[in-house]
């Protein structure tokens, strides 16, 4: 009752709130950690876009020394190879630079797909309730029962090797977390006075969802999306490391597998396997930092 009254009082401020919501989606610039995260992303985006210009060699090109011997296992700095070469004579630095492309491609598409499916499931389940809710939430239960990494492995083994396998697997399984959270958010929104009012005034369900529900749910979708970027990149790395990745596309996970299989560990070739892992950490934690920025927008009282 009192809740209905306060929402009615606040109703004129809705446009302002909407603007604020949209503003928050753009960039959480108030949080220093989130700004660092955004800078890291900017760095990687530039790296991915200008990869052909930055990388001195084709990442798959087999290189030879001036004496026409295979340029294998060269240490950093030798013959101008910034990070040295692999056992098969490929330039590590160039592979690193090109790796940013697959990381961003997989990370961003997977995050988009997961956030989209999760939000749609959550909104439909929460808004319509009834059997739709029951069916979708039981599906989520099942998704929670599927071990994710084993699932990706099996899927990758069945399908043609491709970087998209990770995206498909995430779309099939990982919408569950986002879906549940968005559903409960939708449930509370559905009972707000202005939604009630819109329904009484004869607005269609679609219109109510687009006008009143979706804008309020969006920051949450972004929060889960920014976490999903990291998950996708880590998963791709794991899959490539286990040998189920796409052999034609250079990714940091593939580099690590190459290094591991070529005994880089026993050779002590830190310059080979440390940089890819370091960049994975950098880009994944950037996602975490940004998600914390969104968290502070969403739950401002919690001073985390």
């Amino acid at each position: 009752m009192s809740d209905a009254v306060t929402s009615k009082i606040r109703a004129p401020g809705r446009i302002a709130r909407l603007r604020r919501t949209l503003g928050s989606i753009r960039l959480p610039l108030h949080d220093p950690l989130a700004v660092i995260g955004l800078c890291i992303y900017l760095f990687f985006i530039l790296m991915a876009v200008f990869a052909p210009l930055i990388a001195p060699h084709d990442p798959n090109e087999i290189l030879f020394t001036s004496e026409f011997a295979l340029a294998a296992d060269l240490t950093p700095g030798t013959d101008g190879y910034i990070l040295g070469t692999t056992t098969l004579g490929r330039d590590i630095f160039s592979q690193i630079v090109w790796g940013a492309r697959s990381a961003l491609l997989i990370g961003l598409t997977a995050a988009f797909v997961v956030a989209l499916i999760g939000s749609i499931v959550g909104i439909v389940a929460g808004y319509f309730g009834g059997w739709a809710d029951t069916v979708l939430m039981r599906l989520a239960d099942v998704a929670f029962g599927i071990p994710f990494l084993p699932f990706v492995i099996v899927l990758a083994a069945f399908l043609e090797p491709s970087i998209w396998n990770v995206v498909i697997a995430m779309a099939l399984v990982l919408w569950r977390d986002t879906g549940r959270v968005i559903r409960s958010q939708t449930l509370t929104l559905r009972n707000r006075a202005y939604v009630e009012a819109a329904r009484v005034a004869g607005s269609s369900d679609l219109k109510i969802i687009l006008r009143h529900i979706a804008p309020n749910v969006l920051p949450l979708s972004f929060l889960y999306g920014s976490i999903a970027i990291g998950w996708a990149i880590l998963t791709e790395a794991s899959i490539s490391f286990l040998g189920f990745g796409d052999p034609d596309s250079i990714s940091w996970g593939y580099m690590l597998q190459d290094a591991f299989a070529s005994q880089a560990l026993s050779k002590g070739s830190y310059y080979w396997f440390v940089p890819p892992g370091f960049l994975i950490i950098l880009i994944v934690s950037a996602g975490f930092f940004i998600s914390r920025g969104y968290e502070q927008i969403l739950f401002p009282k919690l001073d985390r």
Partner: peptide, 26 residues
Amino acid sequence: VPLVLTTRAMPEFWLGMLLLAVFSFG
């Protein structure tokens, strides 16, 4: 806190590789 977040961002197998290289092979 950011340091701990960073450990969550590590590929587990990479951490394993690093420990292997340092404490086993090294």
